[in-house]
Design a protein around this nucleic acid. Structure first.
Lengths: 120, 120
DNA sequence: CTACCTTTTCGACATATGTCAAGTCTCAGG
DNA sequence: CCTGAGACTTGACATATGTCGAAAAGGTAG
């Protein structure tokens, strides 16, 4: 990958015409690809599923680390990627940081992938 | 990534409970992640959008290469990744290979990402 | 302030990935 | 059977990424 990908902020839910509407321009393709990349890892999709299934006030990094069987450093890295992509939000309470899923962001991404309808 | 990802066939549309239903087991997380990884590239998502928008009998590698502005070798590599993920199908006619999108596979992946409903 | 716990950041390492050039394969037309 | 055009494969290379241990940052309690 000689060409370094541009750095863009993808923390907001994506909002654009669906991929099937017309050939994507480069900027939109990048926006979509970066968000997909955030989810395209077994650990991260698992983290998202854990957080989506949680109905409480969030789960702390340490508990998530044991849930996925990785060190806290690595788990924090994955959570950081998900946060940058707007898929989770951190919430510091005392010594711990509790994460929650952001279903709206996931849903927005889903809509863009739609073969029929868009999001806006 | 010290741990090499297992090699699994992902050419069929995915079929499993949605990520929000419950924490994913490792196998399912891998299945989903590999398919997402196939799409998580600006060039590939663009290729998919081009093929989805095409209402004809497919588009050949050479035309796709010029559409994304890359060499045919690189384009062929990306198409191969998409084919392995079941997102496109090749169709050889004479000297050319024409690719078409597989909306069913994309739709299946969308369903798995659903926050509410699954695919099966 | 000190001691301790949790999280993030940093440095290092091995593996994976995107890209191209060059070589190889496949096929249509003489 | 050749030959040439197009597509695919291979090799090489630079960059990106996942993982960990160690160190730093943030926060609590004594």
């Amino acid at each position: 990958m000689p060409k370094t990908l541009p750095m863009v902020d993808i923390s907001a839910p994506i909002c654009c015409a669906p991929v099937s509407a017309a050939p994507l321009d480069d900027d939109t393709a990048l926006e979509i690809a970066l968000r997909l990349k955030a989810l395209a890892d077994p650990v991260r999709i698992k983290l998202v599923s854990i957080l989506l299934a949680d109905s409480g006030d969030g789960i702390c990094t340490c508990d998530l680390a044991t849930a996925v069987g990785l060190t806290e450093a690595t788990t924090s890295h994955h959570l950081g990627q998900l946060r940058k992509a707007g898929m989770v939000t951190p919430d510091r309470r005392g010594m711990n940081v509790y994460y929650r899923a952001r279903p709206d962001s996931l849903e927005a991404l889903r809509n863009v992938l739609s073969v029929t309808t868009g999001c806006c």
